[in-house]
Amino acid sequence: MENSYKERLRGLGKYGLFIAFFAICLTLTFLAPTFLTVQNLMIIVTQVSINALLAFGVTFVIITGGIDLSVGSIVAVTGIAAATFAHPDTYPVIVPIGMGLLAGLAFGAFNGFIITRSKVPPFIVTLGTMTVGRGLALILSKGRPISNLSDSFNFIGGGKILGVPTLILILIVTFIICSVILRKTVLGRYMYAVGGNEQAARASGIQLSTVKMVVYALSGGLAALAGILLTSRITTGQPNAGAGFELDAIAAAIIGGTSTSGGTGTMTGTLLGALLIGVISNGLDLLNVTSYYQQVVMGVIIIGAVVLDSLNQSTR
């Protein structure tokens, strides 16, 4: 009897997020007539997409038992790197994109390098590189926004293809790729193994340092993608862009069921977590709740998600 109760609790943990998400959407549909319109839903997904991309990268990292606080700063550095090469009539659009992605991958690989070579915890290392990154963005841009970007660059994050915002299309494609990496490749399996039991992973012949390097580089690369898209969308490279984004990204992963102790988590969960954050802030906007209250609500939801997760853990 006790067993079936535990089973039920576990089940609730598994589908709790779906249930919560649809319950909130349903409630908002009744309370705010404009909520369930194609236009509003597109607004939500567009607003969510930058955070979701960051959250995908952070999910990889948290699954291996690490954390990445530097993604917000990577958004700024890579945005500046891209904007520098994106003025009209200079380089083809592939150059700013390539420079941005390269900068992000390098930044992430650097995180991974320090974390695997030193025994300093990822929290500290990425806290440090977060500050370094912000400084780099200010140095590279001389503290000023970089505007006057080419139309083709501005199209990447601000355009529409067949009426669908490019941001949404990129989000969908990235989501699929990240899911496949996690579920269908050896790399993904090793991420779960490293986070689930590092000693067992090592004893099974897995090179911990390689897996971690790749994971932090991936996180950096996804942050770069977010940085490029954000710069393109606001048509300016902002050295202060992305401040605090890391916390929203971590929140999305955690609400989505990624355990901070490592070893569990899915991309679907993280996407749902990011969407939940977006839907709630959009809904509260539509209901004319001030942003002060929105922050309180968001905090309560994050803690609630972790409590649910720990309940889940203790019923094992």
Binding site: G195, N197, A201
Partner: peptide, 18 residues
């Protein structure tokens, strides 16, 4: 030394897939 989150088969072949 086993990974609790993975399945039996995944644990048996861990580190040797491909």
């Amino acid at each position: 030394l086993l990974v609790p989150e993975l399945t039996v088969a995944q644990n048996i072949f861990l580190g040797r897939e491909k």
